[in-house]
């Protein structure tokens, strides 16, 4: 049985629940608004050998309970959908218990609470991306104008500016002159991320269980394909196969970050290449809203994810 946690009216949560219902999968759903109200979690971790069976407990509802041993995997969309979190001590306690369950559950979890944190700082992910064999864009975060100027002058064209954190930001190019005008000599620049604009085709690769790679091309003239309409462009998504060495690098990266569902943003070099070191990885989304890609590119992400989460541990 798959445990799904999240807001029932959040788009990706609802999409995955509909898939589970349509395909007659066995699942248990917890709306996060009910944590600390009608739903509470009990976890027990006795001393003993590590491995399956050590974590015990249950999801408790007012009149029934489901033991953790009945669960095969967990899909979490907790914290998404701009749901106003209940602030009662009971609700906060259960939210903390849910995060602990995600980290400690011995079966597959998409995704564990701590594994999702790497997305909070893009350069942190770059260390893992480079280790996986992919390229990252030339990037500068912080520093002074005196450091920014030679960095920017060495780039091919004006640099792109985006958030260094996981805060949503519209990616845009900034001119040398505009940055010069806002810089104060000797003072640190605002801590945004400046980087080389990478030419090529945007590819989003969803990796499930560090094994299954489902990729699509985003064909657009927009700088940020996620928001093409904001610049008057359109985007077309089309399923594609990654060269096997690149797919393998994506698996390595997912494994290194410990995420069972990753949305990896890549740029394929013009003319293509099967060498991972020619492909640039912009970031790894650790809570990917895969619905848009599934609906527009026909990728069976929900099915592959459900298969992965529904397989009993050890089988």
């Amino acid at each position: 049985m798959i445990l799904v946690m999240g807001p029932v009216d959040e788009l990706v949560t609802a999409f995955f629940l509909k898939h589970l219902t349509d395909t007659k999968r066995e699942y248990l759903f917890v709306d996060e608004r009910h944590l600390g109200g009608d739903v509470r979690l009990e976890l027990d971790l006795p001393q003993g050998p590590s491995g399956k069976g050590r974590l015990r407990g249950a999801v408790h509802f007012p009149t029934w309970r489901v033991g953790l041993e009945e669960l095969t995997g967990i899909y979490s969309r907790l914290g998404t959908g701009n749901v106003e979190q209940r602030k009662t001590p009971e609700a906060r306690a259960e939210q903390a218990h849910a995060a602990a369950l995600l980290d400690l559950f011995p079966g597959p979890v998409a995704n564990r609470a701590t594994a999702m944190l790497s997305n909070g700082s893009k350069p942190c992910q770059y260390a893992a991306i480079l280790a996986a064999g992919l390229r990252v864009p030339d990037t500068l975060v912080g520093g002074t104008w005196e450091r920014w100027e030679p960095f920017a002058r060495a780039l091919d064209g004006d640099p792109v500016i985006k958030s260094v954190s996981d805060e949503r930001s519209l990616v845009k190019q900034v001119s040398w002159e505009a940055t010069r005008a806002s810089a104060r000599p000797g003072q640190a620049l605002a801590p945004h991320q400046f980087q080389q604009r990478i030419h090529g085709t945007n590819i989003r690769a969803h990796v499930v269980g560090a094994r299954h790679v489902l990729a699509c091309r985003a064909e657009t003239q927009a700088l940020d394909y996620r928001h093409p309409d904001m610049t008057g462009h359109t985007v077309s998504l089309r399923a594609t196969e990654l060269p096997e060495p690149v797919a393998e690098a994506c698996r390595r990266l997912s494994r290194a970050l410990g995420v069972d569902l990753a949305g990896i943003d890549l740029i394929e070099p013009p003319g293509g290449s099967s060498r991972p070191e020619d492909w640039v990885c912009l970031e790894v989304n650790t809570c990917p809203g895969f619905m848009w890609f599934e609906q527009n590119a026909g990728l069976p992400i929900a099915r592959v994810l459900a298969d992965f989460l529904g397989t009993p541990l050890g089988s």
Binding site: L117, S118, G120, S121, Y126, V141, A190
Partner: peptide
Amino acid sequence: YLSSEHEALREAFHTCCPARVINRRGLL
């Protein structure tokens, strides 16, 4: 927003600094 950016930069420094770091912090 800027607070998040400062925090992310600090985490980036801890993770990526090429010095020999004792007890390396950061999001990894």
